[in-house]
Design a protein around this nucleic acid. Structure first.
Length: 477
RNA sequence: GGCGGCAUAGCCAAGUGGUAAGGCGACGGUCUGCAAAACCGUUAUUCUCCGGUUCAAAUCCGGAUGCCGCCUCCA
């Protein structure tokens, strides 16, 4: 199956053909480290985590670069307000970021460069742009990119310069020759970090770091450049202008942009204040539940985040794990394998869906189909052919390796999930077990009235009982 | 004001020219002392609306309406 990727500037899916044979370079814009990450960041990180895992699974020799923006206005503002250095703030939030990624099961990128570690490359690139007449030095020693001198500005985001000027919502800065121009190098004010440069003691503009670092690690043409939708303009547009202006080569072959996480239909963001941090949320819900929610919609569509959506993901995850648990606990038998075909079909569908522009939503549907099939087969014959267990495990480990869900042992995972939230029931586990024993004694005595009373009482407290031949189990609903 | 995206059942959601995946919910059934879970079946003659292209449209084109995003820091 050949991989198709939706390419932002072309607005359609295209077959994925890397620039350099089997070697693939992917650069994804990471985070600005001035605060804790929220669920919107989590989505982007998880989307590209899944993409990178899948590319590797497909046999590409991937180099995945994801940067940290560790010097910027917000970091400086934060540092000043806390009386700390910008460096301390950046380091603190890089550490926090790594903890979050660990919680979410997002694998580290191959290279995670920081802007401040590549000032020399940034300066070289600005100089190159200046030499080519695409950049100019302003009076204060800042350097700006001259948008009007670069042919093709706007091709990524589908805008035209005239239209943007007509829009007239761009800042007019006195230093700029044209309101659309953007800073490559900013002269530092008092108390701000600075580096020496041919123009002024200053610091890099926001966009240039990505151009400089991606080129440094991956060359002039990236196979895939990714980030959130909000980065298309101006960030990625500006990166393109700088890189193509400086090197004369196509900057990125495929542009991949993920949709937002919204809250009641509005973009989750710091400025709107409608955000929830990864850390807060994963204290209450298992990270796999969040992960499943974030991959259960196509990566380009918005996802509306809510307790209900989270709950729906939990139900789905529990359904998958229960099926796996059921298989593991099944008695074994010899004979023909009824699961073989079902598993094979699933694996093929999985690959096909992933090749179709990383359609994880479709993958989840296939996972539901697989679950239904396996349950049906087990309803018919509760014994499992011994060879089918490793087969199913192999198919599932592919799912875990690429999607980063279903990585836990089913039984303990289910135990944890089903008993989470028990604190607001008002009964301890032992008390519940005690009541179950009383009920089972009543059932044995065929005193169903009493048995049902106990069950109804527990139900009213959110405890659902489940009788089976192996005994009675309970869960918090 | 400029540019772009989206609109599919009660809800979430996949589907970009060949006759509507999947999940939740609801209802009926099998199982069960009764439930729960699991499974089976039913649940969109139709994809916001109006026109057009085509043998064929949720999918393409034009228009309307609504929602969202970007144009200022954003994942």
């Amino acid at each position: 199956m050949t991989l198709q990727i939706y390419n932002t500037p072309y607005k359609k899916k295209q077959p994925f053909v890397p620039v350099n044979g089997n070697n693939v370079g992917m650069y994804v814009c990471g985070v600005t480290v001035y605060d804790m990450c929220h669920i919107g960041h989590a989505r982007s990180l998880i989307v590209f985590d899944v993409i990178s895992r899948f590319l590797r699974k497909k046999g590409y020799n991937l180099t995945y670069v994801r940067n940290y923006t560790d010097v910027d206005d917000k970091i400086i503002a934060r540092a000043n307000s806390l009386g700390r250095s910008y460096k301390e703030i950046a380091e603190k939030y890089i550490d926090e970021f790594k903890i979050d990624m660990d919680i979410l099961g997002v694998k580290p990128a191959d290279v995670e460069p920081k802007a401040t570690e590549h000032i020399a490359e940034i300066i070289d690139m600005v100089r190159m742009l200046e030499d080519k007449g695409l950049a100019y030095r302003a009076q204060d020693g800042s350097v700006y990119f001259s948008v009007s001198k670069f042919r093709g500005y706007g091709k990524l985001s589908g805008r035209r310069i005239e239209e943007m000027i007509a829009g007239a919502r761009v800042d007019v800065e006195e230093q700029k020759q044209d309101p659309l121009d953007f800073a490559l190098w900013k002269r530092s004010k008092d108390g701000e970090p600075w580096w020496d440069s041919p123009w002024s003691k200053g610091r890099p503009g926001w966009h240039i770091e990505c151009s400089a670092m991606s080129t440094h690690f991956l060359g002039h043409t990236l196979d895939i450049h990714g980030g959130g939708r909000d980065l298309i303009f101006p960030h990625h547009e500006n990166e393109t202008a700088q890189s193509e202006g400086a090197f004369g080569a196509e900057f990125a072959k495929y542009w991949v942009h993920n949709g937002f996480v919204t809250i009641e239909g509005e973009k989750m963001s710091k400025s709107l204040g409608n955000f929830m941090t990864i850390r807060e949320l994963t204290k209450e819900v298992h990270p796999e539940i969040l992960r499943l929610l974030l991959i259960s919609r196509h990566y380009r569509s918005p996802i509306d985040f809510s307790k209900d959506a989270l709950h729906a993901s939990q139900l789905a995850l529990v359904r998958f794990y229960e099926m796996l648990d059921r298989v593991e606990k099944s008695p074994l038998r010899q004979g023909a394998s009824p699961l073989g075909t079902v598993i094979k079909t699933f694996s093929e569908n999985f690959d096909e869906a992933m090749c179709d522009d990383f359609n994880t939503a479709k993958v989840i549907a296939h996972l539901h189909d697989l679950t239904t099939e396996v349950n049906r087969i087990l309803d018919n014959d509760p014994a499992v052919v011994s060879d089918d267990i490793p087969r199913l495990k192999a198919a599932m480990s592919e799912v875990s390796e690429i999607l980063g869900i279903l990585e836990q042992d089913p039984a303990p995972f289910l135990e944890t999930i089903k008993r989470s939230g028990i604190s607001d029931v008002g009964l301890s586990g032992d008390e519940i077990e005690g009541l179950i024993e009383q009920r089972n004694a009543a059932r044995k005595a065929r005193d169903f009235k009493k048995a049902d009373e106990i069950r109804d009482m527990l139900k009213s407290r959110g405890i659902q009982l489940k009788d089976s031949s192996e005994g009675t189990t309970w869960e918090k609903v």
